[in-house]
Amino acid sequence: MLKSIENIGAIVISSLEQTGRTFNLLLIVFWELLQPPYRLYPIVRQMYFIGARSLTLIIVSGVTIGMVLGLQFYNILERFGAVDLLGAGVALSVIRELGPVMTSLMVVGRAGSSITAELGIMRITEQVDALECMAISPGKFLIAPKLVAGLLSVPLLTMVFDFVALFGGYFVGVYMFGLPEGSYMNGMTDAIEWVDVRLGLVKSVIFGLLITLICCARGFYMHLGKAGSQGAEGVSSVTTDAVVMSSIAVLFSDFLIGALI
C-alpha cells in the first residue's frame, strides 16, 4: 500500500518537473528569439520539414475524413429528412473541431516524433554539448526555429485540411447521394460564421505551439529523465512519450478551449 502511494507520488513529482522544464524552455526560447541576430532561413527550413512535407498526409487524411463525415451525416440526416443540412454539418464539424485536432495529431505523428528523436540523438551524441561549448545557445539554434515553424505551419495545414475535408463531404453529398450542389454549398455558407473560423484558427495556433514545445522538450531534456542513459532505447522511449503527451495535450486543450470560448 505504502509502496503504491510512493509510486504515485514519484509519478506526480516527475510529471510536475517535466511540465516545469517544458514551460521554462518556452520562456527561454521566447527570450532568446528577441535577441539578435534574427535569422529567417532556419525557420523556413523547419516550416518545409513540419509543413510542406506533411502536406500529402494532410490532404489524404482531410479528404478521407471529409468523405467519412459526409457519409455518416447523410445516413443520420436522412432519417430526419434533413439532408439539406449536410453541408452545414460537415463544415461546422471540420472547421470548429476536426480540422485543428486531426491536423495536429497528424503533425505529431509525422513531424513531432522525428523532432523528439532528432533532439534526443543530438543530446546523447554530445552534439548539444558541442553547441554549448561553441557558445551557441541550443535553445535559439535548435528549438526556436522548430517552435516558430510549428506555430505557423499547423494553422496553415489546418486551413488546407479544412478545405479538402469540405471537398470530401461535397463529393459524397453531391456525387454519391445526388444532393443538389446549391443545397450543400448554401447549407455550408449559411451555417459557418466568422467566429467558427476564428475558433478553429485559435485552436490550431495553440495546438501548434503545444505539440512542438512538448516534442522539443522531451527530446532536449531526455538526459534528465529515467531513460537518460539508455541510448537508443532511451530515444525510442522519449519519442513515444512525446507523441502520447502531445496527443493528450491536444485533446485536453481542445476541450478547455471549447469550454472557455
Partner: peptide
Amino acid sequence: MGVAFQGGALFS
C-alpha cells in the same frame, strides 16, 4: 576554447 569530443559530436 575549442573542444574535440570523444565521438566527434559533429552535427549530422
